[in-house]
């Protein structure tokens, strides 16, 4: 029996696809059988982050329109052979798949994997409905910015109306700003949204570097964000892992910044 999780956000560009790729690889690294479904039809990116863009033959839209079975559309990961991507079409738009069709597909796939992670498009229109319908619970990704938190709250309302359990990931935290009091931290976002946090991920240049290479940072020992994703994976597997402390600049480094070096 699979656990079906949708990764959603409200505001666009806060890190849903990055989160989906990292959690997917992280779970696969632990030996779980995982499929990642890209529902951002027309704007697909999950294939790129996983380095699988050149191996796509059929898409989610082909499966929904019965031109292929979902097994035919799955792309197996090169390194983690228990990880699969169900890519979507880059030419069709969100109306190509309706929520009922998606629910039917998830029901069909449910017994074949340990985890099904669904990457949701931005916004609250049909694409959102399609992405969330088959999910058992939802991860809401937000950033420590006032507008991203407000939009997250709207999505949380929608998810609660559908009786979905929700956990929060705060992405792109800049510890130095938090320390200086110029950025919201996880605790205050927790307090505002009243949703349990399952992770806090620092802003990390390595995320961009890793996207360039098609290798999610969760594989990189040296990356802070990678460690944060490994911790989230552990929590998803039921382990109790405390939230990491991020290193911040010391007094002298800050002195240098202030005086412009």
């Amino acid at each position: 029996m699979s656990e079906v999780i949708v990764i959603t956000s409200g505001k666009g560009g806060v890190g849903k696809t990055t989160t989906t790729a990292n959690l997917g690889v992280g779970l696969a690294m632990r030996g779980k059988k995982v499929v990642l479904i890209d529902t951002d039809t027309g704007l697909r990116n999950l294939d790129l982050l996983l380095g699988l863009e050149r191996r796509i033959v059929y898409t989610l839209v082909d499966v929904i329109q019965k031109r292929a079975t979902y097994e035919q559309a799955l792309v197996r990961h090169k390194k983690y052979t228990n990880l699969f991507l169900l890519p979507t079409s880059q030419v069709a738009d969100k109306t190509a798949i309706n929520p009922e069709q998606m629910a039917e597909l998830i029901a069909q796939m449910r017994n074949d994997f340990d985890y099904i992670l669904i990457d949701c498009p931005a916004g609250i229109e049909q694409g959102f409905q399609t992405a969330i319908i088959g999910a058992d619970w939802a991860i809401v990704v937000t950033m420590p910015e006032i507008s991203a938190v407000r939009d997250a709250d709207k999505i949380i309302g929608r998810l609660q109306a559908e009786h979905k359990e929700i956990k929060l990931i705060v992405n792109r935290i800049r510890p130095q700003m938090v320390k200086e009091g110029t950025m919201l931290d996880m605790t205050s976002i927790d307090d505002i949204l009243s949703i349990e946090c399952i992770g806090q991920v620092p802003d990390d240049e390595k995320v961009v570097d890793s996207a360039n290479r098609g290798v999610p940072v969760v594989e990189w020992d040296s990356s802070q964000a990678g460690q944060a994703y490994r911790n989230i994976v552990g929590r998803m597997c039921g382990e109790k892992i405390s939230f990491m402390e991020f290193p911040t600049e010391g007094f002298f480094t800050r002195l240098k910044h202030v005086f412009g070096h």
Partner: peptide
């Protein structure tokens, strides 16, 4: 100002301001 920055001193932080504003706006949104 530079000294204040070094010692991280300000009266009300923008973190606190954002927190307070969000609390109010979300009540109305909800």
């Amino acid at each position: 100002e530079a000294l204040m920055k070094i010692f991280g001193k300000t009266d009300k932080s923008s973190q606190q301001i954002a927190h307070d504003r969000l609390k109010v706006v979300l009540i109305h949104d909800r």
